[in-house]
Amino acid sequence: MTMQDETIVSAVISILVENESGVLARVIGLFAGRGYNIESLTVAPVEQSRHQSRINIVTSGTPQVIEQIKAQVGRLVPVYRVADLTQVGPHVAREMALVKVVSSGEPRTEALRIAEAFRARAVDTTATSFVFELTGATEKLDSFIDLMRPLGLAEVSRTGVAAIIRGPRTI
């Protein structure tokens, strides 16, 4: 008999769906109804000509739960393909954040200095505020935001993860 593995792992699930109304609700409703986590979610049309959208969901659970997530999502009628990129192999996962920092004097200069170190771009600047745009792995965004906290962090808007397999393979 196979033993169950209880360790919690993180997974990036990419789902190619028919771009029709209600399809996102189906996927999210499935996660909510079966008690699966959603840590982040992105969705956008990717193949206009074929009416296809791609949903990327960062989730976590035991390996058995991740397998169930794939199988349950795969059951949905408008789903073409579903893949766990963390399992498929090396992949790139990126998200973008817009970070508003309101401060002046020393904290303001410090914020700008850190932004440069992170290669964040100031996309809006006033005498008392910055809006930084930063793209990267989730952890990088997390630490940037942490560093901005004492420097007048006012508001954050994040996209969630978009992910893709490295190399010539596709999902």
Binding site: T2, Q4, Q64, E67, Q68, A71, G74, R75
Partner: peptide, 13 residues
């Protein structure tokens, strides 16, 4: 017939 039913409750060989 439904892949999601397999290994849902009980791990099988």
């Amino acid at each position: 017939i439904e892949p999601s039913q397999i290994n849902k409750i009980v791990q099988v060989d």
